[in-house]
């Protein structure tokens, strides 16, 4: 597989380490009333789509960026690659 790194262009997936669903970016608020339940859902509940899946890849053999890769789990077609830091900021994780 090739991952089209937003900064570096297409790079072999062998340079990356896979972690899992990009929902891991959305870590719950530890002070929420139902924080425990939220963390259980965060830690253990995952979608398992047949089709587009947003997932986290770490460019360990490269620039050490975490990426959010949108990959079709059936065809492996990759439709979008973003720096996870940008995604995290967009999704409200700024301090």
């Amino acid at each position: 597989m090739m991952i089209d790194h937003p900064t570096l262009g297409p790079r072999d997936a062998a340079e990356f380490v896979y972690m899992g669903c990009a929902s891991l970016i959305n870590r719950p608020d530890w002070q929420a009333e139902d924080a425990l339940q939220q963390f259980i859902d965060y830690g253990y509940q995952r979608d398992n789509p047949s089709g587009a899946h947003r997932e986290l890849w770490f460019h360990e053999g490269g620039d050490r960026s975490w990426l959010v890769v949108t990959r079709d789990t059936v065809t492996h077609a990759i439709t979008q690659v973003e720096l996870a830091r940008d995604v995290a900021r967009r999704e409200g994780r700024s301090k």
């Binding site: 972690m19 970016i25 770490f58 360990e60 050490r64 975490w66 830091r85 994780r93 700024s94 301090k95």
Partner: peptide, 19 residues
Amino acid sequence: AVGVYRHMEFVRQCLFPDM
């Protein structure tokens, strides 16, 4: 060593991107 560094980068980039 490798896994902890990876984890720390995850926390830095994905969980607390503006630290």
